[in-house]
Nucleic acid binder design. Structure first.
Length: 353
DNA sequence: AAACCGGGGCG
DNA sequence: CGCCCAGGTTT
């Protein structure tokens, strides 16, 4: 290591005391629970987007017991639009585990925290250091970027050898004192100075020990993942409206895309909507194609072809039941909805009014 | 259009 | 361990 860890940490901490963020919601009364929820949300989303979600989540679930007691649908509702819904389900499961195994109090031992679903090494370290001041090393995306540049760690950080090297560096740099401030500082540095593009090297407290900067190669780090070719998939989505202004939603399986969320019935492109409806005792008064749209996932693009179907008034044979509801977008019970479903419901309200 | 992001699950 | 999966935003 070409950098003295004490000097590195001292510079980072000095910078933090002048420029670090201290006004974020989860930094007020930073209990383990509050920090935990924020870390899970921040795993997938930037601070600006997270804040309103976080506020609403905390108003509804102010503590672990209220989260554990809530139905999963309500938790997913508060996550709607954030993506990576498995994390909301893990958060919920973990809250229930904490009530069962830890009397409702967030555990304070690293191994116990790591054992909770949805919490890996970095998140466990972040929660325990930021909320309780324990000495743990963290390595989130921001920290990875800073370290990859300062030490010119070649390769994409997702690859194991690269990841191991970054952990090794991160551990050596973690100071004995002021770990909470140091960890927060490293995340802030990555989030506000050492940006992925257009980093503000002139404003960086460790510029003069940054190897990438010294060689004018900041843009080369961290190494990029090689682009994977994404497949294309197409589905029809049946937006079935009844005369009450309700739409038919079905609960998706707990794993896979949009796991546990409520969505429109999906058909393959070769399936016949008429046959699907008839098989369920429904018949359409009118079917209209809505504008197709594309929704991107990491591994494929989904082309959605929505069909607006107005159902005849006559006695409907599809009833609310497990995994199926007639949903009133205006005043229905709150449920988890994916971004495209929310978008379609919004358009529906504009059409009908 | 491509990059990004932490953890779970599986072979 | 190595690889694949998930979703919406930013660049």
């Amino acid at each position: 290591m070409t950098v003295n860890p004490d000097i590195f940490a001292a510079r980072v901490l000095a910078w933090f005391h002048r420029h670090g963020r201290r006004d974020l919601p989860w930094q007020q009364q930073p209990t383990s629970y509050r920090v935990w929820v924020s870390e899970i949300m921040l795993q997938q989303t930037q601070v600006r987007t997270v804040i309103p979600y976080y506020q609403r989540f905390m108003e509804t679930f102010p503590d672990i017991r209220s989260l554990a007691a809530a139905p999963e649908d309500q938790v997913l509702h508060h996550w709607s639009g954030l993506g990576y819904y498995a994390r909301a389900r893990n958060l919920h499961r973990a809250a229930r585990q904490i009530v069962e195994k830890h009397a409702g109090r967030f555990p304070a031992r690293f191994e116990e925290v790591l054992a909770l679903p949805g919490i890996g090494e970095s998140t466990a370290g972040a929660v325990l250091s930021l909320s309780l001041g324990q000495r743990h090393t963290i390595l989130d995306g921001n920290v990875k970027r800073v370290l990859a540049r300062v030490f010119m760690v070649e390769g994409w950080p997702g690859r194991s050898p690269v990841q191991r090297r970054l952990w090794e560096i991160a551990r050596q740099l973690t100071p004995e004192q002021e770990v909470a401030a140091y960890n927060q500082a490293m995340m802030d540095l990555g989030a506000t100075v050492c940006l992925r593009s257009r980093p503000d090297c002139a404003g960086c407290p460790v510029m003069d020990c940054c190897q990438a900067h010294g060689q004018d190669r900041v843009r080369d780090f961290p190494g990029r993942r090689k682009a994977a070719k994404r497949r294309e998939r197409s589905v029809q989505m049946l937006v079935i409206c009844n005369s009450e202004g309700e739409v038919l939603l079905r609960k998706r399986p707990p794993t896979g895309i949009w796991g546990g969320l409520w969505s429109f019935p999906e058909l393959g492109m070769d399936d016949k909507p008429d046959e699907w409806l008839a098989a369920r005792g429904l018949s359409a008064e009118c079917i209209r194609e809505l504008a197709p749209r594309r929704h991107s996932f990491s591994h494929f693009h989904l082309h959605i072809h929505p069909l607006l179907i107005l159902q005849k008034k006559t006695g409907c044979q599809v009833l609310d039941g497990d995994g199926q509801v007639w949903y009133n977008p205006g005043n229905g019970q709150r449920r988890g909805l994916s971004a495209p479903v929310q978008q379609l419901l919004l358009e529906l309200q504009r059409i009908s009014t």
